[in-house]
């Protein structure tokens, strides 16, 4: 279903030094630095899996997600998802995936959420019947009935995130990428989101790749985790195995912190 082989990606960033003088010099001559973001990333994910993708800030999680969703093209390596290369024939490919960026909204701020949904129906060319069916299912499971008539600016973060997730699933994608879906949510909303993700996976068989810093997300959802640090995959396996390796008596949070220290990432 998803197969990444030897993906490399680096970014070219301008070196900046402090001080006004060097800022001025940089206008005329700029030094660039190549920063490797991903170094030889390979993994496979089967259809119907939920995979938790974890790693500290700046380790390359988002870059991987962006490559898998066709936003970025890697410097080298192969990526085959559903038999397609994401950044080739982008328009066709992205019709089959759903992406939630937890930190960015895709809803229109000033109009009722339902209007945003209806625009998405046209963007994805969803037939009326299928749209009505998916919408009613999502409304029921995510408990949206009362909030979709409100403009997004009036929603709480938890309510908005539920709407964001629904917006990414209207076209019934086979694969769902969730980039920090529980960031900033209160306990109740977190649980609701987790429960929904699980249901979506079990009942619809949607393949889900989830990045998060919240280890409880991982504990509750992912049977398999991928740990990335400094652009390399450091651990790929079952969450239970990782737990066995670690000292007993540690919470999930402490265990991961320990792991980050161990790998010096």
């Amino acid at each position: 279903m998803i197969k990444l082989e030897h993906i490399h990606k680096s970014f070219r960033v301008a070196k900046r030094k402090e001080g006004l003088g060097s800022a001025f010099r940089a206008l005329f001559h700029r030094e660039y630095q190549i920063i490797p973001a991903l170094r030889d990333i390979s993994f496979e994910i089967a259809a119907g899996e939920i995979v938790g993708y974890i790693g500290p800030n700046g380790s390359g999680k988002s870059t991987t997600i962006k490559i898998m969703s066709g936003i970025l093209r890697p410097d080298s390596g192969n990526c085959l998802i559903n038999g397609q290369i994401p950044w080739q024939n982008r328009k066709h490919y992205v019709g089959q995936i759903g992406v939630v960026f937890g930190q960015r909204s895709q809803l229109w701020w000033d109009v009722p959420v339902i209007d945003s949904f209806s625009l998405l129906q046209d963007i994805y060319d969803i037939p009326d019947k299928a749209y009505a069916k998916t919408l009613s299912e999502l409304t029921a499971t995510l408990d949206l009935a009362e909030i979709i008539q409100l403009p997004a600016r009036q929603l709480s973060l938890g309510q908005r995130m539920r709407c964001e997730i629904a917006a990414s699933l209207l076209h019934d994608p086979r694969i769902l990428f969730l980039d920090e879906p529980t960031i900033g949510l209160d306990a109740v909303s977190k649980l609701a989101v987790r429960e929904f993700i699980q249901k979506q996976n079990q009942e619809k068989g949607t393949t889900i790749i989830l990045t998060t810093h919240d280890m409880q997300d991982i504990e509750a959802l992912a049977s398999r985790i991928l740990l990335i640090g400094k652009g390399q995959i450091l651990f790929d396996g079952r969450y239970a195995d990782l737990k066995k390796q670690a000292k007993t008596g540690l919470s999930a949070e402490e265990m991961v912190a320990e792991l980050y220290r161990e790998y010096q990432i």
Partner: peptide
Amino acid sequence: GNGEFDRILVRPRH
């Protein structure tokens, strides 16, 4: 800057 363009790229339109 604000990532709106990333969103555009994951939608199936030109």
